[in-house]
Design a protein around this nucleic acid. Structure first.
Lengths: 200, 200
DNA sequence: CGATACTGAATGACCGTTCAATTAGTTCGG
DNA sequence: CCGAACTAATTGAACGGTCATTCAGTATCG
């Protein structure tokens, strides 16, 4: 879900792809405008023609990511809540995680770590968090209505699940070990089986 | 537990305190040697007399933090596992979180986000994670032996709890909202009451 | 022809790091 | 006990490099 979709067709998409590549290759902290430009057919100056500054470019990149996230979540059918839950987890906390995906997650964790210092990043992070959390809550609510989930508090449980997902990603990233998410994912599945799903 | 202990008595401690202050004030990404020196009585050059480079200074700072963490954990009495569990959580995921503590957590999250790109940071992060995780596991094991905890898998459960703590911190930090940890802490306590503690 | 897309070279700020020079502290022979 | 010799601690100024950003100018196209 966080890897790249298809060929870029507009200049904006070309810049987004260049940004994506630079982030994967160098991480956020070492991604300079120059390095984004290197992944881009056109020149460095053109980036400044389209964006006021580096922050605006990155902010648009986060906006772009959010669009993709929403599209991805909308594509999950909601008729079977248990199935939907698994689909959301597979999309957002895949275990095992492919190499490029993992590289990109590292950069995303870096960006999230800058969010408290940067209003525009923080706004996008907040929207993205809320999109995921709300998706989980809606699925939980449906499962409870359908009688396939225990009558947990959907909002609080969604928050807890999402927090665990964030923790799993952050921990795997900071240890540079993609396999860490496998174990955390298992524990999360155990929790769902014990406290959310009514039966196996 | 992550705030500052007493007055610095050695030059090393002075440098550690200066680093701590710079990190609290500017965050990791914007903490330059100059800014650490500004929080330091002595000169910028002196930092290079004591440390080979910036990375070595920060690495020693992380080492210093780990020493404090271990001291803090050792001071928790282990006769009552339920009490010990709460003490560990209060120390590492205090809710509510004071302002300075929260500022410092932001910087720590930034440093963790750099760990995948930096061997020496990663080593310290790994040690610190393992110290906490092992402390949780030992407490769980004791509680199970004493019959006050359900017979969960201590290692896996400790990992899950720690992952939730990391997620709670990371999420609160990236939203720049200390109150987020309060809700996550409640959910974690609910989880413990449901799945770990034998009774209220 | 006018506007939009695009370029390469230049600028100034800051950053990590070095170094020659100075001061403070310690050791030790007379 | 004194001061000379030596080591450790400390300093300010300077250097080279990278970075984000600007800008005057060129190409493209409706």
């Amino acid at each position: 879900m966080t890897d790249w979709p298809g060929e870029p067709s507009t200049t904006r998409e070309e810049m987004m792809l260049a940004t994506y590549r630079a982030l994967c290759e160098y991480g956020y902290a070492e991604t300079s405008i120059q390095r984004i430009a290197d992944e881009f057919d056109k020149s460095k100056s053109l980036l400044y023609y389209h964006y006021e500054d580096k922050e605006a470019l990155l902010a648009d990149f986060l906006r772009f990511l959010l669009e993709q996230l929403r599209t991805g979540l909308e594509s999950i059918p909601d008729d079977d809540p248990t199935e939907a839950m698994e689909r959301i987890l597979d999309a957002l906390l895949p275990a095992p995680m492919e190499d490029e995906e993992f590289q990109f997650r590292k950069a995303l964790v870096e960006i999230r770590s800058q969010a408290p210092y940067n209003d525009v990043y923080r706004e996008q992070v907040a929207r993205s968090d809320e999109t995921i959390r709300a998706g989980l809550a809606a699925t939980l609510e449906r499962g409870i209505e359908d009688g396939v989930f225990h009558p947990v508090d959907p909002e609080r449980t969604a928050t807890f699940i999402y927090t665990s997902m964030v923790g799993a990603t952050h921990r795997a990233v900071s240890l540079d070990d993609p396999d860490q998410v496998v174990r955390d994912r298992e524990m999360l599945d155990d929790y769902l089986r014990e406290s959310v799903y009514r039966e196996e």
